[in-house]
Amino acid sequence: MPSPTPRLPRPSAQDAPHSGLRPAQTAALAACADALLILLFAAIGRDAHQRGEIITGVFATAWPFLVGAALAWLVLRLWHDPLRVWPAGVAVWLGTVGVGMILRALTGQTVVLPFIIVALLSLAVFLLGYRLVVAGVRRLRSRRRQA
């Protein structure tokens, strides 16, 4: 009779990264960071094209992307681990761009290939970038604790 496979210990609360924040706080901060970075993307784009109406214009440009990010958060329940690059970061990034472009097209806003490419690249840097930084910091902290 073969011997049973040994059970691995389950991670405990002590194994979790120590950020000092509760999960709900982490999710709220990540959602706010996503929204602010999407607004920054819209503001940079409007500034690059020298468009007027600074505040209302930024929101007019950003709202389809904000809806896309919100849908990704809700449909995929990303609040469970919002700072992971995969799947949370990739889901927010692709949801933001995909839904954002669909909503722009449905509302008569510009959707051309160069803009899609710029949005994909810019929002990847923003939405995946800070999550990569968080992952790196977590790895460093973990290594220091083990040493």
Rank of each mutant, 00 (worst) to 15 (best):
P2K: 10
P4M: 13
I54Q: 14
P9I: 00
L106C: 01
R77V: 00
R46N: 13
A60L: 03
A48I: 01
V67T: 05
P4W: 15
P64W: 05
L113F: 09
R77F: 04
L128T: 07
E53L: 05
R144C: 06
R145G: 15
L36S: 00
D81V: 01
A27H: 07
H18D: 06
V134P: 15
P114H: 03
L103V: 00
A119S: 10
A35E: 14
G129I: 14
R138V: 01
D15T: 00
W93E: 15
A35Y: 08
P114S: 03
W63C: 03
V85D: 15
G68N: 12
R7V: 03
S142E: 11
P11S: 07
F41G: 12
G45M: 02
A43W: 06
R46H: 05
A70L: 10
T96F: 08
L106M: 00
P87E: 14
W73V: 06
V133G: 08
G45L: 02
L66Y: 11
G108P: 14
A35P: 12
G89C: 05
V75A: 11
A135P: 06
A28Y: 13
I102D: 03
V85R: 11
I116Q: 15
L127H: 13
L76Q: 08
L120T: 07
L36W: 00
L120D: 14
G20T: 02
S142M: 06
T5G: 04
R7W: 05
D34P: 14
V67S: 10
A72D: 11
P114A: 02
T61M: 07
I44H: 07
F59I: 10
A135L: 05
G68A: 14
S12A: 02
P114N: 00
A72L: 13
P23Q: 14
S122Y: 15
V97L: 06
G57P: 06
I102N: 04
T110D: 13
P114C: 00
A48M: 02
A31H: 08
W73G: 15
F41D: 11
V133P: 06
I54R: 12
L94N: 10
L94C: 11
A33W: 04
L76H: 12
S12G: 11
I54D: 09
R77W: 10
G129Y: 13
P64T: 02
P11L: 04
A147H: 05
A60T: 01
Q14D: 09
